[in-house]
Design a binder for these strands. Structure first.
Lengths: 131, 131, 131, 131
DNA sequence: GTGGTCTAGACCACC
DNA sequence: GTGGTCTAGACCACC
């Protein structure tokens, strides 16, 4: 598996791995129940310290995004394992607020934000289909 | 001036101050040309070290969000000083992508994201008017 | 007399005044022996605190660029009052070095620096003649 | 690494460090991709507080002169990362103007400025080769 | 090991 | 009054 890692970025490498895997899952490139590469394998692919991969996997497991099956490997969780709760809408709203603040300081009108969001949703699963 | 600061958060305090001020500007609570509290004053209000406030103000000045007038104080920049360039849409799209990834992992359907965004835009300047 | 002053610049205002007057003298706009505006007059013109103008004039007097004649006013020094000494070439070389360091980091080739310098010299007294 | 620091100068120490490092890079003494001393190491060498070195490094990183690799250290950027843009010639011209103003007040004729500049360019990389 | 953040407190230049 | 710099020393995350 390949993920875009920038060792010069201020975002920690383990966080970049988390973000990259979550994005691939969200886009449907990594499907529920599918197997992830082993820590060593991914460390080799990305030429990164295995400890760093391990930290990313631990965080993803804590967040119920992936699960470790002893002796078999690591797998993407089924959707039902992360059921929706009332606490999740406030989190999303917080992100939405930050998005609008950013848009304002980039001088992008809100109407364009809505438009861009709709465009992105429309083409969201493209990467998966083109796979 | 009050800003919500969480000293236990992993987000640095100076960054929380930056975010808080940018949000107040974006919502119109802090208008262009209006005066910000002095470093010492804000440090007292938030019971935070003046150096930390100074770092936040310096970052905001570098980003052309605020400007320092020698010996007089610090002021919100006029809008025209941060003109829009072609490099800004990609930044917004990156944020939009992260938003959709987050929504997926929170089990919030994209249609609801769009709906929430429109609601938030509709009530964006409420805080200012209620002031 | 008008000078370009930016109260938001990180260069102190009194320094901007010094630089502006030195530039006008170097370009021949202000000729040797010519009279400068009084402190009060210049303070009015630039809408700046008279103390700030006074500080600039004091520094210029210390550097033998201008001289105060009691009861008559302030005048540009004659050239002969700032005779050339051996200590001045090193100062210029220090400035030249900084110029080349800057050019390197701006990715401007040295050949272009030389060319730009010659162009600038060729058109140096234009402002005076157009006066 | 040694840099000439004057703690009595009006130029801030962190700025002197920035200038010194930029000069060493421009002269080729510090080559692209080469490693800079760690903050603590340089602080020891120059007997300066680590915070001051850190500020200098952060400014240099913002200017894309150096880059931080997490946990590994700080390195000189590759040249291609600071591409030339149209906004850079005006900055150089501003510096050239200041140079000519200074030359005039030092009583150094412009012909000698040109001559000194050409001499300096001719011997620019000497320090590197003599290394 | 590396750099990043924060506090406490001092001193300074500028207006 | 204002912001800017610096020290001394602590603690933290990352690799």
């Amino acid at each position: 598996m390949w993920l875009p890692i920038d060792s010069r970025s201020s975002t920690p490498i383990y966080q970049q791995i988390i973000d990259g895997i979550k994005e691939r899952i969200a886009k449907g490139v990594l499907e529920p129940q599918s197997k992830l590469p082993s820590i060593r394998e991914l460390a080799m692919d990305l030429t990164i310290n295995p400890n760093t991969i391990a930290k990313a996997y631990q965080e993803l497991e804590r967040g119920r995004v992936i699960e470790v099956v002893r002796g078999k490997g690591t797998f993407v969780c089924a959707l039902t394992e992360a059921p929706r709760s009332a606490s999740q809408l406030p989190l999303l709203r917080e992100s939405l607020k930050k998005l609008l603040v950013e848009a304002h300081h980039l001088n992008v009108p809100f109407s364009e934000v809505t438009q861009e969001l709709e465009n992105m949703i429309a083409s969201w699963f493209e990467e998966k289909e083109g796979e």
